Amino acid sequence: MTNDPGKEDFEVMPSLLSSSDLYESFKEYKRCLAALPKSELIKRGWLSEEERAVGSWDFFTQVHKKNQSALYRKNNSSDDPRILMWLSKVKLEANLRLFQKGLSDFEGIDREYLKSIAKMSPEVSAVKRLPDILKEKGVILIYCRYLPGMKLDGVVFRLESGHPVIGLSFRYPRLDNFWLTPMHEMAHVCMHIDNMDAPILEDLDIESEENLEIEANRLAKNSFVSRSEWRNCEAKYNKNDKVVEEFARSIGIHKAIIAGMLRREENNYRQYNNLVNEIDIREEVFGDD
């Protein structure tokens, strides 16, 4: 097994076969495979009927890598077979995207770029265009729908080629959750690209005390609204939906995002339900699938 966490699945496959603890990984793999919703995976095409019992090499590779290194720096999600399967699909798709036309070399993104992306949020159709927009900067954005029961919003990591990869699970159908997740991941890309050889899995329902996460949360929030604007925002004191809508319009950000930020800051998820649930972003992206 290579000690370089930047090596991707395609490159570590040969070394997997010589690992002294391959058998332990195999036992873990069988445990994970047994816990997966196989009918759902077959429906999606993630497993074939022939693979129902034996699973897939991509999935085994991910389980083995999890056993050999500290892949997960934010929570204990590494024990969830559904997340390992989901991550294996994101990694496979990311490697395939390297061979597609239109992917630029990654030369970094800055805070102003994040702000420009945030300004796209009022246009709901921008969600579908975002992967093509980001690949012009060399950032690979993958929409990979969550598996039922999976407590994960997204992931960010770097390929050996230097390209950052962001995977989104669409765990929640709300527009505010969609936009806050990729902005958080892009904040990592902006500030922490040298610390992304191992994937950072994001359960944004958890308030992390890690500096990397605090910094990413702060930059993501500031990309939508500056600290001074947020501090003086009337919507923080007047809980009327119309006040939220007017503030969002004045700064050029979708109203659902402002409502979602207020709900999270005040830990009150019963307010602004009409604003955050107005659009089902899963339906916009995946249709009736």
Rank of each mutant, 00 (worst) to 15 (best):
R231M: 05
N195T: 06
K27D: 12
G55P: 05
S69P: 00
D4V: 05
D289T: 10
L16W: 11
S15W: 14
L141R: 04
E24L: 12
L71K: 09
D280T: 08
K91W: 04
L17A: 15
F286E: 07
M120S: 07
S228D: 09
E11Q: 15
L98S: 04
E234D: 11
Y113A: 03
E112D: 11
K239R: 12
K38I: 13
R263T: 10
I83F: 04
K151W: 13
R270C: 05
G252K: 08
S223N: 04
R44V: 09
E160P: 00
L84E: 11
E278A: 12
S121Y: 03
L130G: 07
S208F: 06
K7M: 13
M120R: 10
N277G: 04
E265R: 09
R145C: 05
C233P: 02
D79I: 14
G260K: 06
V127W: 06
S18Q: 13
R218A: 11
M13G: 04
D176R: 02
S25A: 14
S25P: 00
R218N: 09
P5H: 07
Y72P: 00
V63T: 13
P81N: 11
N177E: 05
K38S: 14
K101N: 12
D9H: 14
L33E: 06
I251E: 03
N3E: 12
E245Q: 15
E136W: 01
E8G: 07
E234M: 12
I253L: 09
S208E: 10
K128Q: 04
E207N: 08
P164C: 12
K65W: 09
N240F: 06
N267A: 12
I193W: 00
P199W: 03
A34W: 11
Y72Q: 11
W86Y: 05
L212D: 11
K115R: 14
K239H: 10
H163V: 01
L175W: 05
G45H: 07
F178P: 00
W57K: 12
N3K: 13
A198R: 10
F106A: 01
Y23N: 10
L168W: 09
D105H: 00
P5N: 03
D80W: 06
L134D: 01
S250I: 13
R231D: 05
Q271R: 15
Q62W: 03
R82W: 00
C233D: 14
K115G: 11
M120C: 07
K115D: 07
K137L: 01
M1F: 14
D110A: 00
